[in-house]
């Protein structure tokens, strides 16, 4: 037997382990920021040391809606605007699942806005990651609820005149317990934000401002994806704990980034389990996989149920 020198296997991209490799290359354009956010997401999952069999990803429709299909997780590509109620069903039927919704600004805040508000209000335990590129990419660059005033889109060819949504403010006012915004330039901070959001019980929200070079930047003569990334680097201001009322984004102006909200509220599951246990006593039969939510002492239920808000300074 000859002593062949066996070359070490070439190292693998750390993201690779989380991808459905056979589906790569993906459909996203050169310079699109969605893939960058996916790196941060998989890095955050890696660092979270979760049992990956229990991690479920749910997407809606659109460019960001394709994220679910590229990840080697239990993945659901649902209907336009409805990933959050689908995710609600998953989580309610099996609270042991770690449920992530990954979708775009049009999907989550135009057609799906109502669902976002109510999931946040209920404090269903899930993390919503919104890649906000301020346009509908998949359908060809139409105006969205986050398109800044003055920006052009195929359905506002002379410039948008409607006030855009300030997503962190919406999330905060609807009851999200964790709210952060970063851009696809802030890869380290974004990774940490996603990791923190996933670790935190309750409805958590991370907005990722991201380039759409093909349909937003080009139409607005803002260059390519790299130009957008350079813009984020030059014009972002990190202001952790900022008042979410003051973080609205105007066209090509300062982008305030950071962790804005980090509070504690009883989750839907904790409240429901505690309340039913307290008022129904032994008549309450816990649903499958709810056993860990039931406290042995009914007084603990009362406490669990009544700690509605513990204030946080948001920093």
């Amino acid at each position: 037997m000859s002593a062949d020198v066996i070359a070490p296997p070439p190292p693998e991209n750390p993201t690779e382990d989380w991808l459905r490799e056979e589906r790569i290359p993906h459909i996203w354009c050169p310079g699109c920021g969605i893939g960058t956010s996916v790196n941060c997401f998989t890095q955050a999952l890696e660092e979270s040391k979760l049992d990956r069999d229990n991690v479920v990803i749910v997407s809606g429709i659109g460019c960001t809606g394709r994220v679910a299909g590229y990840l080697k997780l239990d993945s659901f590509h649902t209907t336009h605007g409805r990933p959050i109620p689908f995710a609600t069903g998953l989580k309610l039927a099996n609270p042991k699942l770690k449920v992530i919704v990954y979708s775009g600004d049009g999907d989550l805040f135009a057609i799906g806005g109502n669902h976002f508000f109510h999931a946040a209000r209920r404090n269903v335990d899930m993390t919503v990651i919104c890649v906000n590129n301020m346009t509908y990419g998949m359908t060809g660059g139409q105006v969205t609820p986050t398109t800044p005033i003055g920006a052009k889109a195929t359905t506002s060819p002379f410039g948008n005149i409607e006030e855009p949504f300030n997503l962190p403010f919406i999330a905060h006012s609807c009851g999200a317990v964790y709210v952060a915004r970063w851009t696809s330039f802030h890869v380290r901070q974004l990774t940490k934000a996603i990791r923190d959001a996933i670790a935190k019980p309750g409805f958590t929200f991370v907005e990722v401002i991201s380039p759409c070079p093909t349909l937003f930047s080009r139409r607005n003569r803002l260059g390519d994806g790299l130009d957008a990334m350079k813009f984020y680097k030059a014009h972002s201001e990190i202001r952790n704990g900022a008042d979410t009322r003051e973080v609205a984004i105007s066209h090509q102006s300062k982008i305030i980034c950071g962790k804005f909200v980090d509070i504690t509220r009883t989750t839907w599951h904790d409240a429901q389990a505690a309340h039913l246990h307290r008022v129904m006593g032994n008549r309450f039969v816990p649903p499958r996989n709810w056993e860990h939510l039931i406290k042995s002492d009914p007084m603990e239920d009362l406490v669990a149920e009544t700690i509605r808000d513990s204030s946080g300074d948001g920093s």
Binding site: P11, P14, T15, I24, H26, I34, G35, T36, N39, R188
Partner: peptide, 16 residues
């Protein structure tokens, strides 16, 4: 440092 890997939207580069 793999910052290139974290930035690359196409999973096409990484550092070790």
């Amino acid at each position: 440092c793999n910052l290139c890997g974290l930035y690359c939207p196409d999973f096409a580069i990484f550092g070790v």
